[in-house]
Write a protein that binds this DNA or RNA. Structure first.
Lengths: 352, 352
DNA sequence: TAAATTTACGGGTACGTACCCGACACTTCA
DNA sequence: TGAAGTGTCGGGTACGTACCCGTAAATTTA
């Protein structure tokens, strides 16, 4: 049961180079105070032995804290969706803070790109060791990731993905399939070939995840030769009044709408509109386990909710970064969350 | 940047109990040599402080090796499928052996349940700390897991799952969906409403994963109102001669078979049969990136192969156990592998 | 050329836990 | 009554790395 002694550490390197452990350490962390000659000698031995530091010992001895930036939207009075990931993040924090991991939260406002920029700059200047973020603003996030890449800062996305990003990890739903599932659920309620409305309520119209979801949604209809015409609207002002205004208009224009698919958690505002206007015969499918949404689910205004375990996304996101940082690479590029279906019948048992 | 000093370790416990660290340690590992009185006092303080050991330090100081049993089928001359997971397992081993993890391999013979029993007994007696296994024999695996559960031995399944097992982790495909995908691929080649044959070549007929796959397969046909009749055969003797005999018979009985779905990696033996009997107009879909399968894929005998990244399953399986054992719980109950589709066109780029 | 810096390096302690090696008191038995 | 055992505990070192502090040598400066 003895541990294999085939492992070479700093001690062995020091012995071979005929220097002290401290000097080897200086080279390893390229600190000053080592002559070029001994530096080269030590580096050669490091390469020869293919030295891999013992990260357990390293973390134990280090007084430095690992700092992880959490970069997600602020929980707003409009929608408290981001409360769930934050809970998971806090849970992860309490589990690993004893190993010297500290989280710094940077919230941005979904209605204000400038707040994203500001916080992004703060993060880059704060000297953190990793970032967990929601790439809600696609373009801005892409640029931010680029900046992180330059200084070798690992980044993990949750909630939605921006493909073709190098060096990032994604933990969240397969957005296309999620939309596909949404369409399938919708067909359970479709009784005719009348129109289907896709509603995107967001200040960001070009948001990549909504596009992916909608593509999945449309794909289902194509794949299954559903004859329903799919129309879509973007509602850029997220308050209830604007939503009502837009919906009133579109429903007047297209009298034959028999079902609505909302691409995010703001389905409750559509539900509220339908309720207030007595349009309860329109099927409604949307996203996320919010209290308001559940209420409308219970009262049959919303037919289905899709949910991607947001709390677990937060928890896993932090844990993934922690493992990445503490245990070395182990890089898992993508981890898809389940696409859970919530109905009136099973909502009581749902685990976020 | 200072580490939070809110953490209480053995030192603090010792101070409060007015004993030495060694005595606290004795209590923590319930070794002998502590009076009932001090034991109780120390245990009370442990509970009060909600002491969580620093696993990093613990692993570093411990001279004990973590032993993980690898319990998978032997690579047989018939099919070298299990070579891939083994490669991933070896890769994981080389990455973590420096942290005192040792793997003990126990191979069983897929044609011999007795070999499974024998090795299972060996594992239980070997005093390992965790088990990575393929539950190829469902009933036997279930019983084995029960035994492991009694002695609190964590178990991880790869390749296929046995649901409703407590305390195990599964890393592998969503079998039902995999069969569903198989059916969808099949429809690309179906030109009429003639019969579809499902072939299960295995010494184990009641193998849970084949049943799951087949259910997924049939579900697709049901969901999409495909009129094709699905017939199935079990071939319990896996040699080429037996396969040929069974196929000859079933093809005579059902003259209208236009497609065959093989539920595991032994699709090559069906391909060989089709080739030798010039039945190349029959569509063929099966599993796994084996050299023989790829050859038949290239020569158009096999139309599609489905693959679940077996190497990665092995790698992740070990890593999951390692993290579970070293970093504490972090238990991830299920991790589904992607359901990859391999065709003649993309096989050259496939990453196992 | 002596003093003041700077450069280059080693000694040694700490991180939190594991565990060996005793020490001391107390009991048992011849 | 003394020796041998048993139960209970503490001191101290080790794991592999990080990093503080001190010092001798080399270099610069006066």
């Amino acid at each position: 049961m003895e541990k294999e002694n085939t492992y070479f550490g700093v001690k062995e390197i020091a012995r071979r180079a005929k220097v002290s452990i401290a000097t080897v350490d200086r080279v390893l962390h390229n600190r000053t105070g080592v002559s070029e000659k001994t530096k080269k000698k030590i580096n050669d031995i490091i390469k020869e032995l293919d030295y891999q530091p013992n990260i357990l010992a390293s973390r134990l001895a280090s007084k430095k804290t690992i700092n992880i930036a959490v970069f997600i939207p602020r929980v707003s009075p409009e929608t408290d969706f981001w409360d769930a990931p934050l809970r998971g993040i806090r849970r992860a924090e309490s589990e690993i803070k004893k190993y010297g991991v500290k989280l710094n939260t940077f919230f941005f406002d979904l209605n204000d790109k400038e707040s994203f920029h500001k916080q992004a700059k703060l993060i880059l200047d704060s000297g953190v060791n990793g970032v967990l973020m929601a790439p809600s603003f696609v373009e801005e996030a892409t640029q931010f990731v680029g900046d992180c890449h330059k200084i070798k800062l690992p980044v993990t996305f949750i909630d939605s993905n921006v493909p073709e990003q190098t060096n990032i990890t994604y933990i969240g739903p397969h957005l296309f399939r999620s939309g596909y599932v949404g369409a399938k659920l919708m067909t359970y309620r479709l009784k005719s070939d009348r129109k289907v409305l896709v509603v995107n309520i967001s200040t960001e119209t070009d948001n990549y995840n909504y596009i992916q979801i909608e593509e999945g949604f449309r794909s289902y209809f194509r794949d299954h030769d559903q004859a329903n015409e799919i129309i879509r609207i973007d509602i850029k002002d997220t308050d209830q009044l604007s939503v009502a205004k837009h919906l009133t208009k579109v429903i007047h224009q297209h009298q034959e709408i028999e079902a609505i698919f909302v691409t995010n958690s703001r389905v409750f505002s559509v539900a509220r509109f339908l309720q207030e206007n007595n349009l309860t015969n329109i099927a409604l499918v949307g996203y996320d386990f919010l209290k308001e949404n559940i209420d409308f689910l219970k009262s049959n205004i919303i037919d289905f909710l899709i949910c991607h375990k947001p709390e677990e996304q937060g928890y896993r996101g932090i844990m993934s970064l922690y493992q990445n940082l503490v245990l070395g690479s182990l890089v898992e590029k993508v981890h898809f969350m389940p696409i859970d279906i919530i109905t009136k019948e099973n909502e009581a048992f749902y685990q976020n």
